[in-house]
Design a protein around this nucleic acid. Sequence first.
DNA 1: CGATCTTACGGGATTCGTAAACATA
DNA 2: TATGTTTACGAATCCCGTAAGATCG
Lengths: 300, 300
Amino acid sequence: MNVSVKQIRAFVAVASTRSFAEAATLIHLSQPALSIAIKNLEEAVGGPLLVRSTRSLALTPEGEQFLPVAQGLIQDWDGALQDLHSQFTLKRGHLSVAAMPSFAAHQLPVVLSAYRQRYPNIGIRVQDVVAEAVVDMVRSGRVELGIAFEVDAAEDLSFTPLYPEQFVAVLPPEHPLLQYDELRWPMIAAEPFLTLQAPSMVRQLILESVAEQGIELDIEFESHQLVTIIRMVVCGLGLSVVPSLCIPQIEQQGGHWRPIGSPRVGRAVGIWQRQRYPLSSAAEAMIRVLEQEIKGKTPL
Amino acid sequence: MNVSVKQIRAFVAVASTRSFAEAATLIHLSQPALSIAIKNLEEAVGGPLLVRSTRSLALTPEGEQFLPVAQGLIQDWDGALQDLHSQFTLKRGHLSVAAMPSFAAHQLPVVLSAYRQRYPNIGIRVQDVVAEAVVDMVRSGRVELGIAFEVDAAEDLSFTPLYPEQFVAVLPPEHPLLQYDELRWPMIAAEPFLTLQAPSMVRQLILESVAEQGIELDIEFESHQLVTIIRMVVCGLGLSVVPSLCIPQIEQQGGHWRPIGSPRVGRAVGIWQRQRYPLSSAAEAMIRVLEQEIKGKTPL
DNA sequence: CGATCTTACGGGATTCGTAAACATA
DNA sequence: TATGTTTACGAATCCCGTAAGATCG
């Protein structure tokens, strides 16, 4: 007993139009072909669904009862496949990404807006967490893509660099060090230092980096919030070092900045995804947008 | 974009077993055939559902999301067709019949029991109404079959006789007329007469019949209930005439009866159904059972 | 090297459309 | 007789299974 979708479609067409001829044109089939399709269907299900005389067409009680069921079946079938097709053509779908705060605050909005413009019906969920959490969320599959610094991660993840992020020093207006076009670490170490708090990878990278040079920073204050740090710098409480991504924010808050000379401190920023796990069409599209919007437009 | 049931079945099998080879045996297909089926499915829906490497098999996010949908689709599909098939094989189904009270009370129970024994899973609904209402219910489609006297009905109904019902006279014990083996109408007319009330066709048939002979009955009492009539006869309030079907009930209540000589009063009892409307398998089976259980077993 | 999936190809079944036969009002 | 359905039959298509090729661990 094997019944095809076409057969059910044929039955629904005939039952709806109450005519083989009409139904045949409706489903783009010749009358005889339709006749045989129905005949085979009836054979398969074990009894007649329609009673045809040349002048009238009626449904058997079984057919009458089956008609709405068949209609539902076809509707569900087409609906499900339509949905699936929509996902591939990006006319529908869903995407979860995680991004580290500096990226989420500065670059991501323009990326999202470009993506939304191209694929208006893809729902996007963004998680704004520290870089290490980004990697964890990708690993556990809670998000499909992550954007964060490159770190040492297990083999199960892959990293695609987007651009090399460099750190810059933040200074208050009229600070003496502003006379230099580029600062060096010893100059910075001479001043009180403000930095982000513990889970931040920015903090970690800076401390590791200066420690390699035998320089020690005089950490005066820590905060989770970049805004707070910048505000304090502007108020003259000390200096800080932040990703160049944050330059717009520094300037907006009335701060000044200078690049840091060799050794430059920085880390590649890029896309994290699971190894050997295929991406959704929506995620692949996001990677394309990211590369197009970000690559070559690196700050500094 | 045309997707077949087999293709979805194939996808579900592969996604469940996580192996083409295993799935192939599961759905009785060769590995290559399965491979092509999946390939065609993916082409039809517009993107990959599975990622295969020779050593591992994973679902794409779209495939992951589609799998439960596909499983539901297949389940609904099979379920619906199974149901339909069950109806034709009488493993399931439903039937509505109407029967006139005399038949419903005496013959129908044994018919129903025979039917139930043969087709235990067919639900039956019986309407116990007077003969004319039986015909109306068949005409309006509220029941598929009706069992009642033959009457003049429009062309839209068909009547299949089961047996000729004859009426018999009911008498109290030790009544003088019991000395005859067969009564004649004038003898009956000489006694007080008890009959069923207005909507009953039994009453109507009797009155019409005797009127033709110019005989008038002295109707002493009327009731809707046959039991009441018989009880009154037994108590000596008069005579009555009822269908021979009711003989068991007469005797059970302590009454006596005699056939009525020429002209015999009676009417064919049979099956009513709609013209040009096909019967359900369940109804056809009921007709077979009726004919087998009733034909040739006519009372008297 | 072995297990597994994919491609290639020939045979077979299914399904289609045209034309003719059939049935009913 | 006219309309509408079914049967007949040749052709195209689709689908399957065997055999050979490709790929990953």
